[in-house]
Simulated assay, not measured.
Amino acid sequence: MASGWAKDGAVQDQIDSTVEDGINEARQRLQRRGPSLHSCEECDEPIPEARRQAVPGVRLCIECQAEADRRQSHHAGYNRRGSKDSQLR
C-alpha cells in the first residue's frame, strides 16, 4: 500500500541505500594496500608492532586514526536519498 508520493517499498529502498553507502564508505577507508608503516604518516610517531599486525596496511597511529574517524563521522546519519514523503513529515 502506497502512501503519499512514496512508491511501494520506498522505505526498504532507503534502508538499502543507507546500508550500501555505509559499506562503500567503510571499504574506501580500508587501507590494506601494501605493508604497514612503521611510523604514522601524519605525525611521524612510531606505530606499535601489535597495531601493525592487527591492522594490515595501517598508515596512522591510534591518535591520528581517532581524529580521522571523528572527521568522517560528521557525515554519518544523514539520508541523502530520503523520499519527498519522508521529508514532509
Rank of each mutant, 00 (worst) to 15 (best):
M1R: 09
A2P: 09
S3F: 12
G4S: 05
W5C: 03
A6C: 06
A6V: 02
K7P: 04
K7R: 07
K7E: 06
D8A: 15
D8W: 09
D8R: 15
D8G: 12
D8F: 12
G9K: 13
A10I: 02
A10V: 08
A10D: 15
A10M: 10
V11G: 12
V11W: 15
Q12V: 10
Q12G: 08
D13G: 08
D13E: 14
Q14D: 14
I15E: 13
S17A: 15
S17M: 05
E20D: 14
E20Y: 10
E20R: 12
E20M: 12
D21E: 15
G22L: 10
I23Y: 15
N24D: 15
N24W: 06
A26R: 04
A26K: 07
R27G: 04
R27L: 14
Q28F: 03
Q28K: 12
R29C: 06
R29N: 15
R29Y: 11
R29I: 04
L30T: 08
L30D: 09
Q31K: 09
Q31R: 13
R33T: 13
G34R: 04
G34M: 03
P35M: 05
S36K: 02
L37S: 01
H38R: 13
S39N: 04
S39I: 01
C40L: 02
E41K: 11
E41Q: 14
E42W: 04
D44K: 11
E45A: 05
E45Q: 10
P46V: 03
I47R: 00
P48H: 01
P48L: 00
P48S: 03
A50K: 08
A50R: 12
R52Q: 10
R52Y: 01
Q53K: 14
Q53D: 06
A54Y: 07
A54V: 04
V55G: 00
V55T: 06
P56D: 00
P56W: 02
P56R: 02
V58K: 01
R59N: 11
R59S: 13
R59P: 11
R59F: 05
R59Q: 15
L60Y: 10
I62P: 00
E63K: 12
E63F: 07
E63H: 09
C64A: 01
C64R: 00
Q65I: 00
A66I: 08
A66E: 06
A66Q: 11
A68G: 03
D69Y: 11
Q72H: 13
Q72C: 05
S73E: 15
H74P: 00
H74L: 11
H75W: 08
H75V: 06
A76Y: 13
A76V: 09
G77A: 02
G77I: 02
Y78N: 07
Y78H: 14
Y78E: 06
R81S: 13
G82N: 08
S83I: 01
K84L: 07
K84T: 04
D85R: 10
Q87S: 09
R89D: 07
